[in-house]
C-alpha cells in the first residue's frame, strides 16, 4: 500500500482547507508578503485548484520593503499569473508615520494592519487566507483554521468556536471577515522541507551571503539578518535542527514590549 509522509499529510490538510474556503466564501483574497510561507501558500493553492490561484493576492506595501522582495513580487506575479493587488496606507505615510520617527508596534499597526483594513473596506472581502503558523508565536499557537474577525478587525481570542474533524465555523456577519489559515500545523522546518521537495521559488535573501542570511522577512528597517553560512536548503534545515533561537527573533515589532504580538494581533495584525 502506498504510504504518505508527514509532508503529504500537511499538504492534504492545507489543500482541504483551501477548498473549503474557496467554496464557502464568495469574495476571498490572500495576503502575500513574498516570504517563504506565503510562497508555499501560493504553491498549495495551485495544488488545490490545479495550477491556478483563483482569487486575488494582496501585497501590503509598507514602502519599507527590501528591493529584492519587490523584484521577486514582479517575477512571481507573472510566473504564477497572479491577480495582484498592491495596497499602501498613503494617508499614514502622509502623516509622517515611519520607522524613522515612530516605534515598530505603531508603524506595523499603521502600515500593515490599517492598510489591510483600508483594502478590506475597498474590496469587501469576506475571507482572507493567511500564512501564519502555530510555531511562530504563542498567540498564533492558539489560532483556529477558520478564525473570525469582527468589523473592527478584533480577534475574540477569549471565546473561539470549537473546531474539529474538518468542521469549521464559517459564518461572519456583514463587515466581519474570516481568516483562513491553512499553514497552522506546519513548522518552520516543514516549510523548508516542502520548499525543497517541491522546488518552490523563494527570494534569495533567505540564503547566506557574506556570512549572513534572513530567517524571517519583514520591513527592512526592523528586520535583522542572522549570522549564517547556510547557502542551500539542506544547510538551512541543518541549521534549524540545531538552533534554539526563535524564528521571529529578528522582527523588532514582536519584542517591543511584553505581549506585543498579542496586542498587535488582537487589533488585526496577521
Amino acid at each position: 500500500m502506498t504510504t504518505r509522509t508527514h509532508l503529504d499529510r500537511l499538504e492534504n490538510q492545507s489543500v482541504f482547507i483551501f477548498r473549503e474556503a474557496y467554496h464557502t466564501f464568495k469574495n476571498i483574497a490572500m495576503p502575500w508578503s513574498m516570504c517563504k510561507d506565503s510562497n508555499v501558500l501560493i504553491w498549495l493553492a495551485s495544488r488545490a485548484f490545479f495550477g491556478r490561484v483563483p482569487f486575488p493576492v494582496l501585497h501590503i506595501d509598507t514602502t519599507y520593503e527590501f528591493p529584492e522582495m519587490v523584484e521577486f513580487r514582479e517575477w512571481a506575479t507573472a510566473h504564477y499569473k497572479l491577480n495582484l493587488i498592491v495596497k499602501t496606507n498613503e494617508e499614514a505615510r502622509a502623516r509622517g508615520i515611519g520607522y524613522e520617527t515612530h516605534d515598530p508596534v505603531t508603524v506595523t499597526h499603521e502600515l500593515k494592519t490599517v492598510a489591510l483594513q483600508q483594502a478590506m473596506g475597498q474590496y469587501k472581502w469576506d475571507a482572507l487566507i493567511t500564512g501564519i503558523r502555530r510555531d511562530e508565536d504563542p498567540t498564533r499557537a492558539k489560532e483556529r483554521y477558520f478564525s473570525r474577525r469582527n468589523a473592527q478587525f478584533e480577534w475574540d481570542y477569549k471565546d473561539q468556536p470549537p473546531e474539529f474533524w474538518g468542521q469549521f465555523a464559517t459564518t461572519a456577519a456583514k463587515g466581519e471577515h474570516v481568516r483562513v489559515q491553512p499553514l497552522l500545523d506546519w513548522t518552520e522546518v516543514d516549510i523548508w522541507r516542502y520548499i525543497q521537495r517541491e522546488n518552490i521559488p523563494i527570494p534569495k535573501m533567505y540564503f547566506a551571503k557574506n556570512g549572513q542570511r534572513y530567517r524571517s522577512l519583514g520591513c527592512s528597517p526592523i528586520t535583522k539578518p542572522i549570522t549564517s553560512n547556510a547557502e542551500t536548503i539542506d544547510a538551512i534545515i541543518a541549521e534549524l535542527e540545531t538552533t534554539r533561537t526563535s524564528e521571529r527573533a529578528g522582527r523588532a515589532q514582536d519584542h517591543h514590549e511584553r505581549n506585543a504580538m498579542q496586542k498587535l494581533r488582537a487589533k488585526g495584525f496577521l
Partner: peptide, 21 residues
C-alpha cells in the same frame, strides 16, 4: 511558557488550546 495571553497569565489559567512542537 504556554499561556501566552495576558489574561491567562493574570488569572493563572489556560483559556484556549495551544499546540507546540
Amino acid at each position: 511558557l504556554l499561556d501566552a495571553l495576558l489574561e491567562e497569565q493574570e488569572q493563572n489559567i489556560t483559556i484556549d488550546t495551544t499546540q507546540i512542537p
